[in-house]
Protein backbone atom coordinates (compact mmCIF):
# COMPACT_ATOMS: atom_id res chain seq x y z
CA UNK A 1 0.00 0.00 0.00
CA UNK A 2 2.52 2.52 1.23
CA UNK A 3 5.09 0.84 -1.04
CA UNK A 4 2.92 1.32 -4.11
CA UNK A 5 2.49 4.98 -3.29
CA UNK A 6 6.24 5.41 -2.97
CA UNK A 7 6.87 3.57 -6.23
CA UNK A 8 4.44 5.79 -8.16
CA UNK A 9 6.06 8.81 -6.55
CA UNK A 10 9.54 7.70 -7.66
CA UNK A 11 8.19 7.09 -11.16
CA UNK A 12 6.76 10.60 -11.37
CA UNK A 13 9.98 12.10 -10.04
CA UNK A 14 12.19 10.26 -12.52
CA UNK A 15 10.10 11.17 -15.55
CA UNK A 16 9.92 14.84 -14.56
CA UNK A 17 13.63 15.02 -13.74
CA UNK A 18 14.50 13.50 -17.13
CA UNK A 19 12.63 16.36 -18.78
CA UNK A 20 14.35 18.77 -16.40
CA UNK A 21 17.71 17.42 -17.54
CA UNK A 22 16.76 17.46 -21.21
CA UNK A 23 15.61 21.09 -21.40
CA UNK A 24 18.48 22.55 -19.37
CA UNK A 25 21.60 20.40 -19.65
CA UNK A 26 20.45 18.90 -22.98
CA UNK A 27 18.97 21.71 -25.08
CA UNK A 28 20.61 24.54 -23.11
CA UNK A 29 24.17 23.16 -22.99
CA UNK A 30 25.05 19.88 -24.71
CA UNK A 31 23.08 20.29 -27.95
CA UNK A 32 22.80 24.06 -27.65
CA UNK A 33 25.33 24.86 -30.37
CA UNK A 34 23.65 22.41 -32.73
CA UNK A 35 20.21 23.92 -32.06
CA UNK A 36 21.60 27.40 -32.62
CA UNK A 37 21.53 26.86 -36.39
CA UNK A 38 17.73 27.05 -36.25
CA UNK A 39 16.13 30.36 -35.51
CA UNK A 40 12.65 31.49 -34.48
CA UNK A 41 12.26 35.26 -34.77
CA UNK A 42 15.44 36.77 -33.38
CA UNK A 43 16.16 33.80 -31.12
CA UNK A 44 18.55 31.01 -31.96
CA UNK A 45 16.89 27.93 -30.45
CA UNK A 46 19.82 26.80 -28.29
CA UNK A 47 20.34 30.31 -26.95
CA UNK A 48 16.62 30.60 -26.25
CA UNK A 49 16.57 27.36 -24.25
CA UNK A 50 19.62 28.47 -22.26
CA UNK A 51 18.27 31.90 -21.36
CA UNK A 52 14.48 31.54 -21.49
CA UNK A 53 12.97 28.19 -22.37
CA UNK A 54 14.55 26.12 -19.62
CA UNK A 55 13.12 28.50 -16.99
CA UNK A 56 9.57 28.19 -18.40
CA UNK A 57 9.87 24.42 -18.45
CA UNK A 58 11.06 24.38 -14.82
CA UNK A 59 7.91 26.23 -13.72
CA UNK A 60 5.75 23.91 -15.78
CA UNK A 61 7.43 20.80 -14.34
CA UNK A 62 6.77 21.80 -10.73
CA UNK A 63 3.09 22.43 -11.45
CA UNK A 64 2.74 19.10 -13.27
CA UNK A 65 4.33 17.49 -10.22
CA UNK A 66 1.90 19.25 -7.87
CA UNK A 67 -1.03 18.09 -10.00
CA UNK A 68 0.13 14.47 -10.23
CA UNK A 69 0.98 14.23 -6.54
CA UNK A 70 -2.34 15.68 -5.45
CA UNK A 71 -4.06 13.09 -7.62
CA UNK A 72 -1.91 10.33 -6.15
CA UNK A 73 -2.56 11.53 -2.59
CA UNK A 74 -6.29 11.49 -3.25
CA UNK A 75 -6.24 8.01 -4.77
CA UNK A 76 -4.44 6.54 -1.78
CA UNK A 77 -6.51 8.40 0.75
CA UNK A 78 -9.65 6.93 -0.84
CA UNK A 79 -8.10 3.47 -0.88
CA UNK A 80 -7.15 3.56 2.77
CA UNK A 81 -10.70 4.60 3.59
CA UNK A 82 -12.08 1.60 1.69
CA UNK A 83 -9.81 -0.72 3.62
CA UNK A 84 -11.11 0.65 6.88
Amino acid sequence: MHKQYWRSNLQIISILLSIWFLVSFGFGIIWSDFLDQFQIGGFKIGFWFAQQGSIYFFVLLIFIYIYLMNKLDKKYKNKSKEEL
Partner: peptide
Protein backbone atom coordinates in the same frame (compact mmCIF):
# COMPACT_ATOMS: atom_id res chain seq x y z
CA UNK B 1 19.84 31.73 -15.28
CA UNK B 2 19.51 27.95 -15.46
CA UNK B 3 21.50 27.27 -12.31
CA UNK B 4 19.57 29.58 -10.03
CA UNK B 5 16.13 28.48 -11.24
CA UNK B 6 16.64 24.77 -11.98
CA UNK B 7 17.49 24.16 -8.33
CA UNK B 8 13.85 24.81 -7.45
CA UNK B 9 12.75 21.78 -9.44
CA UNK B 10 15.10 19.68 -7.30
CA UNK B 11 13.80 21.36 -4.17
CA UNK B 12 10.16 20.80 -5.06
CA UNK B 13 10.57 17.19 -6.18
CA UNK B 14 13.29 15.88 -3.91
Amino acid sequence: LMGWTGGYVLLALL
